[in-house]
Design a protein around this nucleic acid. Structure first.
Length: 157
DNA sequence: GCCAACGTTGGC
DNA sequence: GCCAACGTTGGC
């Protein structure tokens, strides 16, 4: 059963364009240091799952593109590198603690779907990403919400 | 830039 | 195990 996810990224850090510019339009979703998000990436997110790419922490946050999971949970090696910003001294080869998945770009949205728009939309205003205080950087999207967004964007499955 | 909400840390 | 203090996220 295919599932759907929303992944947040600050475009100043890693944007959808950066994903398009990546080799094979694919990147590892490294640097996530939150246990709830870690558990999703380690246990729940599977190859072929759909991803909404969300730009956060900017003037107009928005869903800007879609992606697909191409590699399932594996250790986030950046936690082992002391020179990396996301280094975690508690992580080791034997106990990596942190996990990541690989995602590949599918399609940029011709018109990004802003947070303001989502909040006004009768069927999308219930999305988790809109809930106050929600800072989870990887979260599930219901099939209904996924379908609605793809339809709005003029994209086919 | 502000600040509310949240997750983590560490003293007790 | 509690909880205050702290750091971070992220909308506004």
């Amino acid at each position: 059963m295919r599932r759907y996810w929303l992944m947040k990224s600050e475009p100043g850090c890693f944007s959808y364009q950066d994903l398009l510019d990546s080799p094979d339009q694919t990147t590892c979703w490294d640097g996530v240091r939150n246990y709830q998000a870690r558990n999703l990436m380690r246990d729940q997110i599977k190859i072929g799952d759909g991803v909404l790419f969300y730009h956060s922490n900017i003037k107009e946050p928005a869903i800007v593109g879609t992606a697909v999971v191409v590699k399932e949970g594996y250790p986030d090696h950046t936690a082992l590198d002391p020179r990396n910003d996301h280094f975690d001294p508690k992580a080791s080869e034997a106990n990596p603690i942190w996990f990541m998945v690989d995602v590949k770009a599918v399609s940029p949205l011709e018109h990004e779907i802003t947070r303001g728009f989502l909040k006004e939309h009768p069927r999308l205003c219930s999305m988790d990403v809109l809930k106050k205080g929600n800072r989870l950087s990887v979260q599930e999207v219901s099939p209904g919400h996924w379908q609605e967004i793809l339809t709005l964007a003029g994209l086919k499955e």
